[in-house]
């Protein structure tokens, strides 16, 4: 299936969850937050959340800022 992740097209196996997506993209699982189709996913549900084709995700982290 095809996802939109941070503005990029990302292909992943059907039935994958967010934890598997983060693994595939080599994004460390702590210190990130994820928005799925406009809704922020609570940390407690994050890794097991199953994805669907055409899902739109924003994965963010903290960076230096004023």
């Amino acid at each position: 299936m095809l996802l939109r992740v941070n503005g990029n097209s990302v292909e992943i196996n059907d039935g994958s969850n967010i934890g598997e997506l983060l693994d595939m993209l080599e994004i460390p699982k702590n210190k990130v937050a994820v928005e799925l189709n406009g809704t922020v996913i609570p940390n407690s549900e994050l890794l097991g959340k199953v994805l669907e084709d055409k899902d739109i995700l924003e994965i963010v982290r903290a960076i230096g800022g004023g």
Binding site: V10, L25, E58, I59, R61
Partner: peptide
């Protein structure tokens, strides 16, 4: 201390 929130880099050094 303040921080900004930005997209993680995809395909860069993990």
């Amino acid at each position: 201390v303040t921080v900004a929130i930005r997209r993680t880099n995809i395909g860069q050094d993990s």
